[in-house]
Design a protein around this nucleic acid. Sequence first.
DNA 1: CTATTAGTTTAGACTGTTCTAAATCGGGGT
DNA 2: ACCCCGATTTAGAACAGTCTAAACTAATAG
Lengths: 234, 234
Amino acid sequence: MLSDVMEDYLKAIYRIQARSGPPVSTSAIADAIDKTPASVTSMLGTLEDRGVVVHQKYKGVELTTDGERVALEVVRHHRLLEAYLAEHLDYSWSEVHDEADALEHHISEEFERRVAAALDDPAVDPHGDPIPSADLAPLDGDDTTPLSACEVDDRVLVTRVNDRDREDLEYLEAAGVTPGTALKIVGVAPFGMVTVRVDGDTEQSLPESVAESIRVCDAVDAAVADERGEVTDA
Amino acid sequence: MLSDVMEDYLKAIYRIQARSGPPVSTSAIADAIDKTPASVTSMLGTLEDRGVVVHQKYKGVELTTDGERVALEVVRHHRLLEAYLAEHLDYSWSEVHDEADALEHHISEEFERRVAAALDDPAVDPHGDPIPSADLAPLDGDDTTPLSACEVDDRVLVTRVNDRDREDLEYLEAAGVTPGTALKIVGVAPFGMVTVRVDGDTEQSLPESVAESIRVCDAVDAAVADERGEVTDA
DNA sequence: CTATTAGTTTAGACTGTTCTAAATCGGGGT
DNA sequence: ACCCCGATTTAGAACAGTCTAAACTAATAG
């Protein structure tokens, strides 16, 4: 069995690798889990001994198939927990992340199954992030774009929001911007400030940092996908 | 903050102290948490530095008020989790213990509150053990007796069963002996084998080890308490 | 009153994870 | 082609928790 600490490393590597592709740099990992680069190098050695990563000195690491499975398991736990807390324990959207982080390493297979059953095997968590299936098959690539990359008059659907920052999430919750919300981009100001019309209703201006943590898909494509019976939101 | 490991030590000391009173011996702790006595001695030193126990060399330890509060918090977590798992996640009576052990150190204050609220502030867990209140006031003394100490023709009510042994719990579940069950002692054989009539219905013979893990109160007393509106079972 | 012995503590080593400080690497600009 | 600087790795120390083996304590049996 791998320790919690090791699982956290693998989760971080997975997340970075999913966004920027391999190889993943030592310092990117260090930033993500708040450790020194020296500590990361040291741990990469032991992770390599365990067969869950491959490390090329001075180049970076990559997860092995085994390593990816472990990461997917942790991510599945995390997202199932987030969904469960929101659905059955009255947690708000912005509160679930920290609790899930604390519990994700400590639940049994049995607990995982029962939580999944209680939620009827959900496909996404409350932030719109996909939940790996029980067989831990790799998630398929992300076809969304950041809101900050949109242009005036685009009509888009919010698919997911970055769950790492409480502040941003509370801001968005108050603004009514959640996965599934339709947005029309009204204006893009200097420094990335984006103004949107929310669900054809109120207007909101979002600072760049917030706009960057929102990922959207084209509203038309989504409608088409919807007709084909695919899942488009939580 | 204390580590999980330290919390486990305090929980074990609490449990032993609750049964046999202080001081608690090094070897009793070692047995309870499956460590060597030398390890226990070492940890008692660091726990004393943290102010949660008082240790007299060669005599034994005792929890301080702070130490007892920590133990009560862990016990509250454990028992609330057991109750929640049984009530809302379809766990059987005999399965809840291990899962609760794994999670008890990792839940937040917030989680504790929400679980308690979802259960409507339960007073006992599925094994009949009392759940410490949110203010962590000391639990009051146990006025139950082990089934193994009963005599023929006694009529008693099961109040709690030891949650540490899966085997015994599964046996009792099958036998229909759970907290709240009324028993009449039919016979006591050599080596402690106890035969009981369950709820005035089927008859069961219980090996001594099982009889020792069942605690009961007098059925008449219980009925009186019940009339006064007190809680007598789960 | 002393010898035995079960229980306890000390001494010292080991594992896992982290850090700081110092050495090293390697890609980009001149 | 060389140098530089930021990124990385190495070296070595520190801390938490555990173990084994050896020394010690205290209660008891004779």
